[in-house]
Computed example of a mutant assay.
Amino acid sequence: MREEYAALVRDHPIPKQHVATFLSTNALRGAGNCATSHDGAAHARRHRQQRRWATQVIVTDELARQACTERGLPPPDDVLPMRLLTVPETDIADLGSIIAAALAHSPAARALLADLEREQHVPETAVRDYYDRNQDRFLTPDALRRGVDPFNTVEPSDVHPYEHVEDGISQQLRHAAAHRAFFDWLDQARADVVYAEGYEHPGDPSQPDHEHRH
């Protein structure tokens, strides 16, 4: 029966039809329409990569669901929606398209990320170091209006006091650390996933048309 499945996630099957439905109802459905009859190979390649991409989003959702269960987190209220939600371009640039899409669509992935963030500890020295090295991010509105150059000498009054921004920096650093932990978790969690032919990771170097984008 394995030929009916796009992937097996710890023996949990991801039906090929699930991937096909996801692709047919989300924003990628028209991505290959620019290919003409004179470029059938490019059209087929794009379709394969879209299918592999969609498989990874669905696999990430299933892995996250299993991780939430193992961590004793409340079951997610929803399943991964078939219709693609809007994924901010900045998230795609920062996280890669697969993880950005999974976090946008999968309640389980978001619940896992939040749990990972609660585990992160950022020492005060790291927060202070970030503040000292990124003075340009903490200029006051008045300093910005006057065009103060943060990379030259800056008066103390031109920068928000450390005590006023410490909590925000700490939260930002915990958030970044949680994303790194999520990346590490996903790399390990999907190592044992078994894929059907044509549904492998789009960046799998064993595939002749692999891509390095995630």
Rank of each mutant, 00 (worst) to 15 (best):
E3R: 07
E4F: 05
E4T: 11
A6G: 12
V9C: 11
H12L: 02
H12A: 14
P13A: 04
K16R: 12
K16G: 11
K16L: 07
H18R: 09
V19F: 07
V19H: 04
T21R: 15
T21E: 11
F22M: 10
F22K: 06
L23A: 02
L23M: 14
L23V: 15
T25Y: 08
R29I: 12
A31Y: 09
G32D: 12
C34D: 11
C34Y: 09
A35S: 13
S37A: 13
S37W: 14
H38V: 13
H38R: 07
D39F: 15
D39K: 13
G40T: 15
A41G: 04
A41Q: 12
A42H: 11
A44C: 13
H47F: 15
R48Y: 01
Q49H: 03
Q49K: 05
W53C: 05
A54M: 14
T55S: 05
T55C: 14
V59L: 05
D61E: 07
D61L: 08
E62P: 02
L63Q: 07
C68V: 12
C68P: 00
C68Y: 02
E70H: 14
R71V: 04
G72W: 01
P74C: 02
P75W: 01
P76W: 01
P76F: 03
D77N: 04
V79A: 15
L84T: 05
L84H: 09
T86W: 04
P88S: 10
P88D: 05
T90D: 14
D94H: 08
G96Y: 03
S97V: 07
A100H: 02
A101L: 12
A102Y: 01
A102N: 07
A104Q: 09
H105Y: 00
A108H: 05
A109K: 04
A109M: 08
A111M: 13
A111L: 10
A114W: 14
E117V: 00
E117F: 02
R118N: 04
R118F: 01
R118M: 05
E119P: 00
Q120E: 14
V122W: 10
V122E: 02
T125N: 09
A126F: 06
V127R: 11
D129S: 11
Y131I: 09
D132I: 01
D132A: 05
D136F: 07
D136H: 15
R137T: 03
L139T: 06
L139A: 03
D142R: 14
D142E: 15
L144K: 13
G147W: 11
G147E: 04
V148P: 05
P150M: 08
P150W: 03
F151S: 07
N152Y: 02
N152S: 14
T153M: 09
V154A: 05
P156E: 14
S157V: 06
S157Q: 12
D158W: 08
D158P: 07
E166K: 10
G168R: 08
Q171C: 02
Q172Y: 13
L173N: 04
H175A: 12
A177F: 03
H179L: 15
R180K: 01
A181M: 01
F182V: 10
D184M: 10
Q188R: 15
Q188P: 05
Q188E: 13
A191H: 10
A191Y: 05
V193S: 01
V193D: 04
V194C: 09
E200A: 06
P202N: 11
G203D: 15
G203R: 04
D204F: 04
P205L: 01
P205S: 08
P205I: 07
H210E: 00
R213F: 09
